[in-house]
Design a protein around this nucleic acid. Structure first.
Lengths: 234, 234
DNA sequence: GCATATATATCGTGC
DNA sequence: GCACGATGTATATGC
């Protein structure tokens, strides 16, 4: 089996055949002149231009332009793909929930490639989850006498990253942020604290490598605490 | 000028030349066998496999696998690209703020394409911004007697989507959500209300096409209001 | 499927 | 450059 197959300047009909032959087994990469119409949660148009179209076998559709990390238009995994040949070649990708459609009107196909892509295994370190794991393993990193009780403690107003008790036995709600904490993080913590303090006395601690000025003011005003997290803690 | 140039199974040296020739003017598309190391805000490894590498002339780097809409690894616009030829071909993309690096170790190049991509113009409708515009143009869509005063009214605790007065002259803070409103939207509105009510009596209204059950309970408990938005309003 | 929260989120805007 | 909030966010997880 070839690793990839390429067609240069194919006709609409041969691209249709190419797509139906390979769309379930290969990643398709098309460089075309096209315009695009999207309707669904919003509605958009992309006028005539050259665009890179990628279709993955899981149904993902990406339409990339000449810059930016984000595709101009897309469809997530699980989307269908159909083609129609009219004056132009029409490619339609549909998603059911929410109901969304991307219609690509292709006037010229520069090239099309089908590749047999076997991706490697991916591992990542340094997420928020690992900050929590570290505090569970070494509770003194948060503060002396802290005892973790429950990870992802559920309340009607959201899930607490880590619930514990301090050395005096007071409940402590801990919210972790891997980046600089902003206003929204303080709001989030406040929401949990407001719920739990109806039942018990409770402290709220926001753990992050930094905090914005506004967020710091707000956290003080609301009687919550900020604990700076040194990422070298391990 | 050709619309695209392709090299099949190029040597490391010829790919290096290809990249330096075209990286500032073309989008590069490489299908290779490689492994990838990322360090920066987090740290990750991607083991040996076949991956699609896209490099845009704005510096964007995308490393796609066989599924999902998101790239496995990436670098945003503004990133640099350098190559080194050792036992394998090493591609390194760097970003300065934050300091981040993606290192690609390439063992085999299936093909490389440089494309001259002139993207079309993009327009979108149905964003939150347009909901606000509609209420400003037709304030009665929010409620009878509402008068808009200020778009993006700034407070130390965030910016209010729309500030206005009701028919009795009471200040009204309006927060818009284009999708179903969740707990975080209620928190956000509460933050603005808490700030402004220190100075004036104030109402807070959350406008969205729907609201989750928890968010609805919370909004009532906090004395705020929910106004269902009918998207057909225009 | 719904709701919640994270993300190497990215991106645009205002200061 | 920082901070804040929107995004057709996508993605994972728990229910």
């Amino acid at each position: 089996m070839e690793k990839y197959l390429i067609e240069h300047n194919p006709s609409f009909e041969s691209l249709q055949k190419f797509i139906s032959n390979y769309q379930n087994t290969h990643m398709l990469i098309l460089f075309v002149s096209c315009k695009v119409f999207y309707t669904g949660r919003a509605k958009s148009t992309l006028s005539w231009g050259d665009h890179l179209i990628i279709r993955k076998k899981d149904g993902t559709l990406l339409i990339h332009g000449s810059n930016k990390r984000e595709p101009i238009n897309w469809q997530p995994p699980g989307s269908s793909l159909k083609s129609k040949c009219q004056k132009n070649l029409i490619l339609i990708s549909r998603r059911k929930h929410p109901k969304e459609e991307v219609k690509i009107v292709v006037s010229k196909i520069y090239f099309a490639v089908a590749v047999d892509c076997r991706e490697g295994k991916f591992q990542i370190l340094g997420t928020e989850n690992q900050m929590v794991q570290q505090v569970i393993a070494k509770p003194y990193l948060l503060e002396e006498g802290f005892t973790p009780l429950k990870r992802e403690f559920q309340t009607p107003y959201g899930n607490i990253d880590l619930l514990g008790k301090d050395k005096k036995g007071t409940f402590v709600i801990v919210e972790f942020k891997r980046g600089k904490a902003q206003l929204s993080a303080v709001s989030q913590l406040k929401r949990y604290v407001e719920y739990l303090q109806k039942k018990h006395p409770v402290r709220g601690i926001l753990v992050a490598p930094g905090i914005t000025k506004s967020a710091e003011e707000l956290i003080k005003k609301w009687g919550l605490e900020f604990k700076k997290w040194l990422s070298k803690a391990s």
